[in-house]
Nucleic acid binder design. Structure first.
Length: 251
DNA sequence: ATTCTTACA
DNA sequence: TGTAAGGA
């Protein structure tokens, strides 16, 4: 049941945007100076802001509420935008566009998100989801990085798992997944990519050919990693279920 | 007169 | 972060 209010690409003057975001004009200007929000469109004397700016301001407010400093938020934003540029530069593009991947991005209006997680769609949970990287802000919409993760989140919440608890678990799993990815990367780096130069860390800039080969080779990690992790998790869950049952039966 | 920036506290 | 002063 989403109310179809008129949401044409509205634009805001400084004062309007500040009021909509619940901050002062001075603060708005301060955020802009600190590169926390993109520059507005300039029409002569007037600075025009749009929904993306408002969304960004809401994100900043949520992160501030959660205890982040302005400096930390600026780094997050820079890393997010910078990382995207680096990926495109390397020709990797959207990682979920790969043919082997079953991941799809899901665009959601804030209203749809509330529909999915009614009572639990709070500013804190939104900030946490942004922080983990499950959600990203794109203009006036939100983008979930994985249809499968989104579906399973809804299922778990319906099963009674509180969203904050689930997000904390997600954070934990993310850490393990990062460690797994690092293991695979190191494996390839040391034993498969032996003929590739050390890298930009301390040396000559790598040739475009090397960059290309590096990207392709690392890309071959993906199916390998998927298979190994899937099989190992299956085995681990098997062992765990047996152990839980044994403990429950009081063995 | 309005809208925004600069500069100082 | 508020605000007075000044440019366009």
């Amino acid at each position: 049941m989403s109310t179809d209010e008129k949401t044409p690409p509205r634009e805001y003057r400084m004062t309007e945007l500040a009021e909509a975001a619940g901050i002062t004009v001075r603060t708005l200007r301060y955020y802009r100076e600190r590169k926390l929000i993109p520059p507005p469109r300039r029409a002569g004397r007037i600075a025009w802001y749009d929904g993306r700016h408002l969304a960004r301001l809401r994100t900043i407010a949520a992160l501030l509420e959660r205890g982040h400093t302005l400096g930390g938020i600026a780094e997050l934003i820079a890393a997010f935008e910078g990382g995207r540029d680096v990926a495109e530069l390397l020709g990797l593009g959207d990682p979920f566009a790969a043919p082997w991947s079953r991941e799809t991005l899901v665009r959601l209006s804030p209203e749809e998100l509330v529909d999915h997680f009614s009572g639990e769609a709070t500013a804190e949970n939104l900030a946490a989801s942004l922080d983990i990287g499950y959600l990203a802000v794109d203009g006036e919409e939100l983008v979930h990085v994985s249809r499968r993760l989104l579906d399973v989140s809804r299922k778990l919440v319906r099963e009674g798992v509180p969203l904050p608890v689930m997000l904390a678990a997600g954070r934990e799993i993310r850490a393990h997944a990062d460690a797994l990815a690092a293991t695979f990367a190191s494996l390839f780096r040391q034993h498969v990519l032996t003929d590739v130069p050390p890298g930009a860390a301390e040396g000559e800039p790598p040739s475009p050919e090397d960059v290309d080969r590096m990207a392709r080779t690392l890309d071959r990690l993906r199916p390998v990693a998927h298979t190994v992790v899937e099989a190992e998790v299956a085995l681990a869950m098997d062992r765990r279920i047996r152990a839980e049952l044994r403990a429950w039966l009081g063995d």
